[in-house]
């Protein structure tokens, strides 16, 4: 599978990544090469094999329903690019 420029742009948008116009063809080549490597998977028949999402077959351990966290807004927001009145700010979203 090779990825053409428009597909690269589509994926870049899906992942919210701006990419310089002049870099698109490099990405297109590199990503196509990677997919070429990835497609060597097709050499093996996996019919009847179940996919595994985790290496160990463990099941979830659940947490008791208790409030354990305290307000740390001030500390957390020290890392925030822009805040006002305790809110994180982003350019106005038009709905």
């Amino acid at each position: 599978m090779s990825l053409d420029k428009s597909e690269v742009q589509k994926i870049a948008w899906l992942a919210r990544l701006s990419i310089d116009e002049q870099d698109i063809s490099t990405y297109s080549d590199e990503l196509s090469n990677i997919l070429g490597l990835v497609e060597t998977m097709n050499s093996v028949d996996t019919d009847g094999i179940s996919p595994i999402a985790h290496p160990l077959d463990l099941t979830a351990r659940l947490r008791a329903d208790a409030v354990t966290e305290v307000n740390q807004r001030e500390q957390f927001q020290k890392n925030a690019p822009l805040t006002d009145n305790g809110c994180y700010l982003v350019p106005k979203v038009i709905e």
């Binding site: 990503l31 990677i34 997919l35 990835v38 093996v44 179940s50 996919p51």
Partner: peptide
């Protein structure tokens, strides 16, 4: 990082999930 994010977004996207992601997780089982 951008390359890998894009590959990742691609292999999970509609129409490719089974051929890439699911296939890889089956191979993982093997």
């Amino acid at each position: 990082v951008k390359r890998r994010i894009m590959i990742g977004a691609y292999v999970l996207s509609a129409g490719y999930y089974d051929a890439y992601y699911l296939k890889a997780q089956k191979i993982r089982h093997l």
